[in-house]
Design a binder for these strands. Structure first.
Length: 418
RNA sequence: GCGGAAUUGGUGAAGUGGUUAACACGCCGGAUUGUGGCUCCGGUAUGCAUGGGUUCGAUCCCCAUAUUUCGCCCCA
């Protein structure tokens, strides 16, 4: 038997229904907020991700799917959505047109990691990016839009953790201060953090092992190392969030894993327990330098992304999700009736009625069961005897009321009852 | 990548070194020879993840591989 590759999964049954529902809401929401749909390639040149995500980050060094095609091109399956959008923005010279551009994407991403509950090697991510505006109102929208989307999907007790990383210079100053503070205590940190100390000291703030320790609680705060301009900007973002009624909490320990973030970074957390310890359902931030870093003109941007599998998993706690009911199920037994069923189904479908019928030759009894499995609202029971006199039996599956309708009026009857 | 656990029909699962692998749900058929969702009866794994090995004999013991899952690492 051939089985699916490790870390992939099939979306079927309930999962498929949930995914469709999530996707429809995403499309609806983004349209409402005036975001344009964008679809970029699933594979890009390897270099794109090395330059955007940061050469030193684990994502690029060991978690991407890299391959060479037959023309010896170095390619990478996209591990995230932002880089492709930025590349397109630059390559299509969108910076020459009216700004900002507001995009949303929704598609599969690839990451070579150990699969687990709600984490796969092929996974689906939805995200938005606003390119070309540094207005704090953009920060507020990028946070409030997913917040409201999650509320709409049924999430309760949402909270936003937000922090201000400031400009590159602000961050460099802070990094130095943090390193100086931690240096005397380095032996008290866990082994992972001792490694991080050299590679990415800011990550130590996020450590699960050392996070609760006094050393880190008393560490200097990045918020104290901001320029006045950056601090005022952050205040403005928070002010907007207040007016938008978004529940947030400033957390100066939030630093994101990627190199490209500056100024506002945030995570949306839900108190659901189904996801285990990790209850972050969306995350994002501002990246005002990335476009330039990738060879475009300096363009301030902000975005967020979230994994649909985790969203879907968390939604298991919410109300039962059912397939859309079928308007009508047609039953028959013999060949003559079957032909009628096929033609009737086509006419009804043309008239906008959702309809189905059996194609496995099962008994009438089983056809009733099949109709129920499909939550059919009306049952059409064809009978050769009645057909001779031009009559068709229609049964309401809720009230069990049965009527014989003239063949010529059947479409109108069903349309007006559906 | 490192460590632990698991893997029996469509599903949930019981089970034993030795003829036909419980039970339940589901599905299909019948009782009801064309009107169901209750009831009753019957059917439903050429087979216990895959490949080796031990054995007279393995689903059961051993090894390897795969997949799943938990923890670490990481998290867009």
């Amino acid at each position: 038997m051939i089985i699916k590759p490790k870390g992939t999964y099939d979306v079927i049954d309930k999962e498929a229904v949930k995914m469709q529902r999530i996707n429809r809401l995403i499309d609806y929401f983004c349209e409402f907020y005036n975001y344009e749909y964008i679809r970029t390639p699933i594979f890009e040149s390897k270099e794109l991700f090395h330059r955007s995500v940061g050469d030193s980050s684990d994502i690029v060094t060991k978690e991407t799917y890299d391959f060479k095609d037959r023309g010896d091109r170095e390619l990478t399956l996209r591990p995230e959505g932002t880089a492709g959008v930025i590349r397109s923005f630059i390559e299509q010279k969108m910076y020459g047109g009216s700004l900002p551009r507001k995009f949303y994407y929704n598609g599969t991403m690839y990451r070579y990691e150990r699969p687990g509950n709600g984490r796969n090697r092929e996974f689906t991510q939805f995200g938005v990016e606003i390119l070309g505006s540094n207005d704090p109102a953009v920060d507020a929208e990028i946070i409030s839009m997913p917040y409201r989307l999650f509320e709409e999907l049924g999430f309760k007790d949402l909270n936003v953790k937000i922090n201000n990383l400031g400009s590159r210079e602000d961050r460099d100053k802070y990094r130095e201060a943090l390193v100086n503070y931690l240096k005397p205590h380095i032996n008290e940190l866990c082994s992972d953090c001792q490694k991080r100390f050299d590679v990415n000291p800011l990550r130590i703030l996020d450590c699960k092992v050392d996070g609760e320790r006094e050393i880190l609680k008393n560490a200097p705060s990045i918020l104290d190392y901001q320029s006045e301009e950056s601090t005022n900007r952050f205040k403005k973002v928070l002010e907007y969030l207040n007016y938008l009624d978004i529940d947030y909490e400033v957390d100066d320990k939030i630093v994101r894993g990627l190199d490209y973030y500056d100024y506002t970074v945030f995570e949306i957390v839900s108190d659901t327990e189904i996801l285990g310890g990790a209850n972050t359902i969306a995350a994002g931030g501002r990246y005002n330098n990335l476009v330039e870093q990738l060879g475009g003109p300096s363009t301030p941007c902000m975005g967020f992304a979230c994994g649909l599998e985790r969203i879907s998993l968390a939604m298991d706690e919410f109300e039962e999700i059912n397939k859309r009911p079928l308007d009508c199920y047609i039953m028959y037994v013999n060949e003559e009736e079957k032909l009628k069923a096929i033609m009737l189904a086509q006419d009804l479908r043309i008239s906008g009625v959702s309809v189905d019928y059996d194609t496995t030759g099962r008994s009438l009894k089983s056809q009733f069961k099949e109709a129920d499995r499909n939550h059919a609202e009306l049952l059409i029971i064809l009978n050769s005897e009645d057909l001779k006199s031009g009559l068709i039996t229609v049964k309401d599956n809720l009230t069990k009321e049965e009527k014989k309708i003239d063949e010529n009026e059947i479409i109108d009857y069903i349309v007006s009852n559906g």
